[in-house]
Computed example of a mutant assay.
Amino acid sequence: MTDDQAIDAFLDYLGVARGRTPRTQEVYRLALTRLQEFMHPRSILVADGSELEAFAGLWLHKKGVVAASRKPYVSAVRMFFLWAQSKKLLVSGNPAAELEHPKTGHRLPRTLSLANAERLMWAPDLGTFHGIRDAAIMSLLMGCGLRVTGVCTLNEGDLQTVDLDGKPRMVVLVEEKGGRMRRLPVPREADALLRVYLGHEDLATIDRDTVGKHGRPDRVLFVNTKHPTLPAHEHRGEARRLTRKGVWSMVQRHGEKVGIPAAELHPHAMRHLFGTELTEDDVPTTTTQGLMGHVDPKTTEIYIELSMRKKMRTVDQHAPLAKMRTPIGEFLKRVPG
């Protein structure tokens, strides 16, 4: 079996047997292609442990891949060789068995501030189809904490209405990392935007028929209105689905228009805002974990470090300086606000 055949078979296994997303398969293919480059002209299947360490360490470093970005490379290599061993493609034992992920410093994610999130929600022109679509997408990113992939893969059938205390409320069924399904409540603001979007006359003219979950007929939820390469008669169905890149571009376009810093202009910053605001309001970590779809509770705990308003209230009320008379404390009492 050639390297290319082995990689293709491995990626098929990831998708079918392990339920990994196409995005994960793309990342793993890139990693294994880079390993082929490192091993050339020899097969990656004959690599030994020291060669894999050199690839994942110094070689990738010289190629400009920082430690944090090398983690998926290591994951891809470890899983590939574990699979190759199970298929008896290796001459000896698993050379990646001892390969470790690079050690990285603890870095806090960049979140969108609440003030900038408000400005961003006012940026789309709600008098246009594009504006309604964009506002609905951002309301799901901010209001439900969805990953951008989760939003892009939504179909109309993933929006469901439930009866809550005698009132109809919307929930969304979202598929994200590892093929996991989550059923999430939709905030009223996002609910209203989605209903306006679905009822828009421009959407009614677009062919967005697709096959949904369990092979049932469905319709793509969020659509693009242009395709740079497809002729008009082929621009339908799945080809109408808005991509991750399209969402990123949309967020940046609206954010730049209202002067939001570039570091905050990515969809994941909205997801971080969701997690941070739940933590600021003392929502239990287990509840936040469930709403965000985190498998490991340690991932959710990062929002404790991001919840600055909560920390500020704590030190203002309970730190030693709050419990004693000081010259500056007396002065502050006389200052308005």
Rank of each mutant, 00 (worst) to 15 (best):
A262E: 12
H294Q: 03
R253H: 04
K103A: 12
K88D: 15
V223K: 06
L99T: 07
F222R: 05
T205H: 09
V220R: 01
Q36D: 09
R133I: 14
L114W: 03
S69R: 06
T314C: 08
L230D: 09
A322V: 12
R271K: 12
L114C: 01
V258G: 07
G105M: 07
A269H: 04
E100Q: 15
P185M: 03
G57D: 00
N224V: 14
Q317R: 11
T161S: 08
T153S: 12
T149Y: 09
L11W: 01
R70Y: 02
H318E: 04
I302Y: 02
I260Y: 04
V151Q: 13
L11A: 07
V162R: 13
Q25R: 12
R20I: 03
R169S: 08
T33H: 14
T225G: 11
A269I: 04
R334F: 03
D125P: 12
M181F: 06
F222M: 05
A54Q: 11
V223R: 05
K245S: 15
R107H: 00
P261N: 09
A54W: 00
S249L: 08
K298Q: 14
L230M: 11
G145D: 03
L265F: 06
A31E: 09
R180Y: 01
E98D: 14
C152A: 13
I260A: 09
A204M: 07
V46F: 10
D207V: 06
I206S: 07
R188W: 12
L45H: 08
P336S: 02
L146Y: 01
P231W: 01
Q289V: 00
I44M: 14
R34V: 14
M181T: 02
M79W: 02
T287A: 10
H106W: 07
L159F: 02
E201N: 10
T2I: 06
V211I: 15
K310M: 02
G275C: 05
S69W: 01
Q25W: 02
E176P: 15
E264S: 05
R188D: 14
T286I: 04
I44K: 09
P185T: 00
T33S: 14
A76E: 13
G157N: 13
G178C: 01
D165T: 11
P327Y: 02
S307D: 02
T300N: 03
L89M: 13
R216V: 05
G150P: 08
V196T: 14
E305M: 08
L154R: 03
T210I: 05
P22D: 06
